[in-house]
Simulated scan of single mutants.
Amino acid sequence: MRIAIDAMGGDFGPRVVIPACIDALTRHPHLSLTLVGQQDEISAYIPSAERQQFADRLTVLHADKVIGNTDKPSHALRQRKQTSMHEALCLVADGHAQACVSAGNTGALMALSRFVLKMLPGIDRPAIITAIPSRKGDSYMLDLGANVDCSAEHLLQFAIMGSVMTQAVAGIAEPKVGLLNVGEEEIKGNEQVKLASRLIKEHGGINYAGFIEGDDICAGKVDVVVCDGFVGNIALKSSEGVARLIGRQLRDGFSGSVFRRLLGWLVKPVLQDIASYIDPARRNGASLLGLQGIVVKSHGGADRQCFGYAIDQAVAEVSMDVPNCINRQLEKSIAIKYRLKRSP
Rank of each mutant, 00 (worst) to 15 (best):
I5P: 01
A7M: 10
V16D: 13
C21V: 04
I22V: 09
D23G: 08
T26L: 09
R27D: 13
H28R: 10
Q39G: 05
D40Q: 10
D40P: 06
Y45R: 12
I46C: 10
I46S: 10
P47V: 06
Q53M: 12
I67R: 08
I67K: 08
I67Y: 11
S74T: 14
H75V: 14
K81E: 15
T83E: 03
S84L: 03
E87V: 06
A88T: 15
L91Y: 14
G95R: 14
A97K: 11
V101E: 00
S102W: 04
A103R: 02
A103Y: 05
G107C: 06
A108S: 07
L109A: 15
L112A: 02
L112G: 12
F115L: 07
V116Y: 13
L120C: 08
L120E: 04
D124I: 00
I128M: 15
I129M: 15
L142S: 07
A146F: 04
V148M: 08
V148E: 09
C150A: 15
S151N: 06
L156G: 09
F158N: 02
T166D: 04
V169C: 03
A170M: 05
P175I: 00
K176Y: 02
E184G: 04
E191W: 02
V193R: 15
H203L: 10
H203D: 15
G204V: 08
G204Y: 14
I206M: 07
N207Q: 11
Y208F: 12
G214N: 03
I217R: 00
G220I: 01
D223E: 11
V224C: 05
C227T: 07
V231L: 08
G232A: 05
L236F: 14
L236T: 10
A243V: 03
L245A: 10
G256Y: 10
V267E: 04
P269M: 01
I274V: 15
A275Y: 08
Y277N: 12
L289C: 02
L289K: 04
G290C: 05
L291N: 01
L291Q: 01
G293M: 06
V295Y: 07
V296D: 10
H299F: 00
G300T: 06
G301T: 07
R304K: 13
R304P: 00
C306Y: 11
D312V: 07
V322D: 09
N324V: 09
Q329R: 12
E331K: 09
E331F: 02
I334M: 13
K341D: 12
K341S: 14
S343D: 10
